[in-house]
Amino acid sequence: MTPDDPMLTDIWLRRELLASGENEKTLRRALQAGLYRRPRTGAYVDGAVWDAASAEARYAIKVRAAYRQAKTEVVISHASALLFNEAPSWGVDLSEVHLTRLDGKTGRREAGIRQHCGRLADGDVRDVHGLQVIAPLRNCLEVSTAASVEVALVVVNHFLHRGDFTLEELRERYANRMDRWPHSLTTDLVLRLANPLVESVGESRTSYFFWKQRLPTPVPQYEVYDGSVLVARLDFAIPELGVWFEFDGRIKYQGEVDPSDVVFREKRREDLVRELTGWRCFRITWKDLADPRALAERIRAFIARVLASA
């Protein structure tokens, strides 16, 4: 996140604008003209920046506005910390701002803000462009208590693959400090499914899909060699069944000068893997994951055909 990121755009509180010479009339006119936008009552941002911002960036601006307006010392936490920790927010409920109070008082909910009360340990908070934000290790544990297993797994695998901490460190923190937190039973399952080799949102969802649908457990990032030369790294493979799976999210084609070149290279890669291993490939898309039962039936039929032809 760079300083010019829309999520970090300037926020002016109403009292600051009034002190700088604005008045109720000029503020009202500026809002009507689109010069200002108001992400929260009493907080203003540049209208052009707000209008061009993505939904995630707008949420981050709302979080920062609530952070600035807090009447006690707080830390940006739970789902609200994900964007500032540069983590995916797929499936995460971004309808509320989450802040953790540092004054020890009971948390509460009001005006689109959920305040939490929690005891913080050393290393739980980091500075992000002047904001006090829950650090990644605690952040993913917090999310696991409030989100589904699939959503939490996406977050945990992201941080693990990025190298923010190890799975052992995560498990130790859970066992020593938070296994008695409310709603933490989900966390135990997430930690058993987590794998630092899983690289993306789509791959994490695919990994969860295999577990949820009681399919054979695939090996992530399976390496294929031609002699001593690594020629391919497969998203998922089940060597004993002679099949492998690729998550095809199309994102990897974006930014290419000619996407057809990418498709051609993928085809050559797939042909080479098949030639070296004799295995068959099954591609999974976002649309497939939206109907997991139908996808599971197709995969079971695919595996059955492969075994029958062996």
Results as ranks from 00 to 15, higher is better:
Glu86Gln: 06
Ser89Ile: 09
Gly91Val: 08
Gly91Tyr: 07
Val92Pro: 01
Val97Ser: 01
Val97Tyr: 02
Leu99Asn: 01
Leu99Glu: 02
Leu102Pro: 10
Leu102Asp: 09
Asp103Val: 15
Asp103His: 08
Asp103Phe: 13
Asp103Thr: 00
Asp103Pro: 11
Gly104Phe: 00
Lys105Cys: 07
Lys105Pro: 06
Gly107Trp: 01
Arg109Phe: 11
Ala111Gly: 09
Arg114Met: 07
Arg114Asp: 05
His116Ala: 08
Cys117Val: 05
Cys117Met: 11
Cys117Pro: 07
Cys117Arg: 03
Ala121Thr: 08
Ala121Asn: 09
Asp122Arg: 14
Val125Glu: 04
Arg126Tyr: 08
Gln132Ser: 14
Gln132Met: 11
Val133Tyr: 01
Pro136Lys: 00
Pro136Arg: 01
Leu137His: 08
Leu137Tyr: 12
Leu137Ser: 04
Arg138Val: 00
Arg138Asp: 08
Asn139Leu: 10
Glu142Ser: 09
Glu142Asp: 15
Ser144Met: 09
Ser144Arg: 02
Ala146Pro: 04
Ala147Ile: 03
Ser148Cys: 02
Val149Asn: 03
Glu150His: 05
Glu150Trp: 11
Val151Asn: 12
Val151Phe: 00
Ala152Pro: 09
Ala152Met: 07
Val154Lys: 09
Val154Met: 08
Val156Arg: 08
Val156Pro: 02
His158Leu: 02
His158Asn: 10
Leu160Ile: 09
His161Lys: 03
His161Gly: 07
Gly163Leu: 03
Thr166Trp: 14
Glu168Arg: 14
Glu168Met: 15
Glu169Leu: 08
Glu169Cys: 12
Glu172Val: 14
Tyr174Arg: 07
Tyr174Ala: 03
Asn176Ala: 10
Asn176Thr: 15
Asn176Cys: 11
Arg177Met: 01
Met178Pro: 02
Arg180Pro: 04
Trp181Lys: 11
Trp181Gly: 01
Pro182Gly: 07
His183Arg: 15
Leu185Pro: 01
Thr186Tyr: 10
Thr187Ala: 10
Thr187Gln: 11
Thr187Tyr: 12
Thr187Ser: 15
Asp188Asn: 14
Leu189Gly: 10
Val190Phe: 13
Leu191Arg: 07
Leu191Ser: 09
Arg192Trp: 07
Asn195Phe: 14
Asn195His: 10
Leu197Ala: 03
Val198Leu: 08
Glu199Ser: 02
Glu199Ala: 05
Glu199Val: 01
Gly202Asp: 13
Ser204Tyr: 06
Ser204Pro: 05
Thr206Arg: 12
Ser207Val: 03
Phe209His: 13
Phe209Met: 12
Phe209Leu: 04
Trp211Thr: 09
Trp211Asp: 11
Trp211Lys: 06
Gln213Tyr: 08
Arg214Asn: 12
Leu215Pro: 12
Pro216Met: 00
Thr217Lys: 10
Pro218Gly: 01
Pro218Glu: 05
Val219Lys: 04
Pro220Gly: 06
Tyr222Val: 06
